[in-house]
């Protein structure tokens, strides 16, 4: 008896070496968060369904599990294979309400949602805030100048595409400290951390 071919495409594979690939991905993210604005190399051989990038997928597989509700932006929600990939490999519940999410994945960085939509933490528990993982296409230096813990003096970075009011939004996020959200930018080959402590330096 012939078995009918399955209509769904094959699920993309997870980490080839789950223990060490997860550790390497986490180590890159930890370095990025402890040195904000510094692009940190992150090699990933994942081949996740578009538009999820392989670096964002590596962050997801390293950090998500059944304890972490995850929010996907419109671009990622439009591709059901992304939610299926994350559900299968991490077991994380995909939620529609951004305020309920511990992690949020943003593929359309130019349409970065308002930070206020996400959990900001509570005065007694500022750690109960969302981490946004935002896919950009490129890192550079220059445009945005940062100060804060993890930075000796000042450090500048640029990333595209991002909304032009990002410095103002980072400053507003910093004003809530110790509350606020934390950002991890991913680009091909690397990650860049923007924890809530970063203070954008506004010129003139």
């Amino acid at each position: 008896m012939a078995i009918p071919a399955l209509a769904v495409p094959a699920l993309a594979a997870g980490f080839a070496d789950p223990v060490h690939d997860a550790q390497r991905s986490f180590a890159a993210v930890m370095r990025a968060m402890s040195e904000p604005g510094l692009p940190v190399p992150l090699a990933s051989d994942l081949d996740p369904p578009a538009p999820l990038s392989r670096e964002a997928a590596a962050c997801a597989l390293a950090l998500l599990d059944y304890e972490t509700p995850v929010f996907l932006d419109a671009a990622l929600s439009a591709a059901p294979a992304v939610a299926a990939f994350l559900r299968f490999h991490t077991g994380a519940p995909v939620v529609d309400d951004p305020a309920a999410a511990r992690f949020a994945f943003i593929a359309d960085a130019a349409a970065l949602p308002d930070f206020g939509a996400f959990a900001q933490g509570e005065p007694d528990y500022p750690d109960r805030s969302a981490t946004l993982i935002v896919q950009v296409s490129d890192f550079g230096t220059g445009a945005i100048v940062l100060e804060g813990p993890g930075i000796k003096g000042r450090r500048s970075f640029s990333a595209a595409p991002l909304p032009s009011d990002l410095p103002a939004r980072l400053a507003a996020n910093r004003a809530l400290y110790p509350l606020g959200i934390d950002l991890i930018l991913t680009a091909p080959g690397g990650v860049l951390g923007l924890p809530r402590t970063v203070k954008p330096v506004m010129e003139d």
């Binding site: 993210v29 968060m33 402890s34 390293a62 998500l64 304890e67 972490t68 750690d127």
Partner: peptide, 12 residues
């Protein structure tokens, strides 16, 4: 993973 998530928030 649970400890790693705590470490990232601690750094932030």
């Amino acid at each position: 993973r649970m400890i790693r998530r705590a470490i990232l928030k601690a750094i932030a």
